[in-house]
Amino acid sequence: MQRSTTLESVPTGRADQRAVVDEARKALGQIILGKDPQISLALACLLARGHLLIEDLPGLGKTMLAQALARVLGLSFSRIQFTSDLLPADIIGVSVFRQESGEFEFQPGPVFSQLILADEVNRATPKAQSALLEAMEEYQVSVDGSTRPLPTPFFVVATQNPGDQIGTFPLPESQLDRFLMRVEIGYPNEESERELIAGEDRRQMLKSIEPVAGPEMLIALQSSVAQVHVSDALVNYIQALARHTRESADVEIGLSPRGSQALVAAARAHAFVENHSGVYPDDVQAVFAAIAGHRLKPSGNTRFRSPAELCQHVLDSVAIP
C-alpha cells in the first residue's frame, strides 16, 4: 500500500499552490458528486492539520470520501474497521518473536499510515478508541516501552453512524474535541444520484485517478494556510460568536478558547481553498457548523432540533463587525 510520492519540486508560490488545491477539489468532485461544500470542508480540515469526523447514515459515501482524499492527495492509506472486539494491538501493531534472530520484532499496525480511515469508530470499546485517539493527539504511539513516531502528515478520518444506538460506545465530548471538524454528508441531489446509478463504478474510477499532490506538497500547503491573513475585524467576529455561544440561553456549554482557535484555523484553510485574500466572514460561517456543532452542548429546553440548526441560529444572531 505504501506509495512513494516524492514530487520533483514542491511549488511555494501561492498561484501554484492554489492550482494544486483546485485540481484536488476537481478530482474529488468527480468521485463524490454534488457535495462541493463537504469536499471543501474535508480539504480545509486536512489543510488545517485537523482530524475529520464524518457522521452520517450508511451508504452516503463516507468511506468513499476518505479513500478519495487519500488517493487524490497521494497519501498512504489504511482502513481500520472498528468492531466491538477490536483490540489496541489491532490498531497499533504487535511485537512478534522471530525464531531465527531470537528477538522480538515490531510489526507495525494500520495506524502507521498517513491517512487512516477509522470506520464506525463508535462501535469499538473505549479502550480501542483511546488507542487511536492517543495517536491523534500525540502523533506517536508507545509500544513495549518505546515510542514510535507516526508518519507525517498524519490524518485520521473517522466515520460514525448516528443511527446505531445498540452496542455502541459514543465518543464523549472531550474526545469529540480532538476532531477539528465534524461533517455530515447527506443525500445527493437528484441529478448526482442519477449519475451515480447510471455512471461508472466509483471504485473503479478511484483507481484511475492520479494523485495531484504528495505528503511534501501537503506540508507546504499547510504552512501556507497558517499564514492566511486574519484581520482585527475578523478576530472581533470570532470573539463575538464565541461570546454569544457562552451567553446564549440555548447553549449550556459554549465554545472554549480551543474551539475559537480551531475556528480560526479551519476558517484560514477554507479561505485558502476558496482563494480569498484573507479570512472572510463567509469562511467563518462556512466552517462554523462543522467546528462548533460537536463542541456546543445545547441546553435542555432548547427549541433547536439539531446542532446545525443551533449553529445557524448563532450565525444569524451575531452581527458581523
Binding site: H229, S277, G278
Partner: peptide
C-alpha cells in the same frame, strides 16, 4: 470591500 477589510494589503485594497 472584503479585500480591504479582511485582506492583508490594506493600502492598495
Amino acid at each position: 470591500y472584503l479585500d480591504a477589510r479582511y485582506g492583508p494589503d490594506d493600502e492598495q485594497a
